[in-house]
């Protein structure tokens, strides 16, 4: 069974996708569906910070924190960094994330 995910683009437009397959990253969902601001240039390698999102407060606990390697990549865009920043290529979709809502960070 798939999950529901919502991206809020930097321009305020909300894009919701129902019944998204688990086992892929949130970046892949955003990129495949042309969510503005989700580029995923490095293909999910945690190397480019072009899939930067802010996880909404109610989802932060379920999503969890960034690891050291992700934090290092986020540090390269420190002007856009917030305490709820994540690179969404590092968020693997699973059933507990059904309904997740993230705000897309402004482009680099």
């Amino acid at each position: 069974m798939g999950v529901k995910v919502t991206f809020v683009q930097a321009d305020g437009v909300e894009k919701t996708f129902d019944d998204v397959a688990t086992g892929q990253s949130l970046m892949e969902v955003g990129r495949f569906n042309n969510v503005e601001g989700i580029m995923g240039d490095c293909g999910g390698s945690c190397a480019c910070a072009t899939c930067h999102v802010y996880v909404t407060p109610e989802w932060q606990a379920a999503v969890g924190p960034a690891d050291d390697i992700e934090v290092a990549t986020l540090d390269m865009v420190s002007d856009l960094f917030k305490s709820n920043s994540r690179l969404c290529c590092q968020i693997q979709l699973r059933e507990e994330l059904n309904g997740i809502r993230v705000v897309v960070a402004p482009s680099l």
Partner: peptide, 16 residues
């Protein structure tokens, strides 16, 4: 710099 990651030494886009 607060925008270090903005440089294009590795390229941008699909051929990054």
């Amino acid at each position: 710099r607060t925008n270090l990651g903005k440089h294009v030494a590795f390229g941008v886009g699909v051929h990054r």
